[in-house]
């Protein structure tokens, strides 16, 4: 394959993955508008630096890593990263539009919103993209062990939260019907 065809195929591959890349950027940035802007900047950088893409590398893994790398670079370049605006609750909730009418529960949305972006992405890559821990770690520049540890902590925490909520809403039922006096 000639070099120009090869780079054209990268572009076509990126187009085919746009919805997945957008989801990744949305969850990282915390909203659709911010995600679109982040993805736009990332795509421009990917195209400018496409020569860095190595043949044989999974294109989705490379593209996700590039988006994450740009987000991290921008965070590091920020004059005061600690004072960056927090995620807007309404914008974040609007990410979860279900087209088939099956609504995502507010508890899970609130739980995801409360997570740091790196942990949200760990979940997305393993539960949403079904990457193995090594690939997910490659995207987020952490070890597979870190991915595994994050996953256990987050899923167990959500399970605990759901169980506690179920406990709060449980009602006491009478197991045996009381005999009424004749």
């Amino acid at each position: 394959m000639q070099a120009e065809d090869f780079y054209d195929s990268i572009r076509v591959g990126l187009i085919s993955m746009l919805p997945r890349l957008k989801r990744f950027a949305d969850l990282l940035a915390g909203g659709r508008s911010a995600g679109a802007a982040l993805l736009g900047r990332s795509l421009q950088r990917m195209l400018a630096e496409e020569h860095r893409y190595q043949r044989g590398t999974a294109l989705d893994r490379w593209a996700f890593a590039e988006i994450y790398r740009l987000w991290l670079d921008e965070l590091r370049d920020h004059a005061d990263p600690i004072r960056q605006p927090k995620i807007d609750d309404a914008s974040f909730a609007r990410l979860f539009r279900s087209e088939n009418g099956e609504a995502v529960d507010a508890f899970t949305i609130g739980f995801l919103r409360s997570l740091p972006p790196q942990q949200r992405l760990t979940l997305l890559l393993v539960c949403g993209e079904r990457f193995d821990h090594i690939d997910a770690g490659g995207v987020l520049d952490v070890t597979a062990e870190t991915v595994g540890a994050r996953l256990v902590r987050i899923v167990a925490s959500l399970a605990d939260g759901l169980s506690a909520r179920a406990g709060e809403s449980a009602t006491i039922e009478t197991l045996y019907r009381e005999e009424t006096a004749a």
């Binding site: 949305d26 279900s98 088939n100 995502v104 997305l124 899923v155 959500l158 399970a159 759901l162």
Partner: peptide, 20 residues
């Protein structure tokens, strides 16, 4: 409980992708 949590996360990520 862990399966339920896992399923809810998968559904949440599917919902975002469906919207996109």
């Amino acid at each position: 409980a862990l399966k339920d949590a896992h399923r809810r996360l998968e559904a949440a990520f599917e919902a975002i992708l469906a919207g996109e």
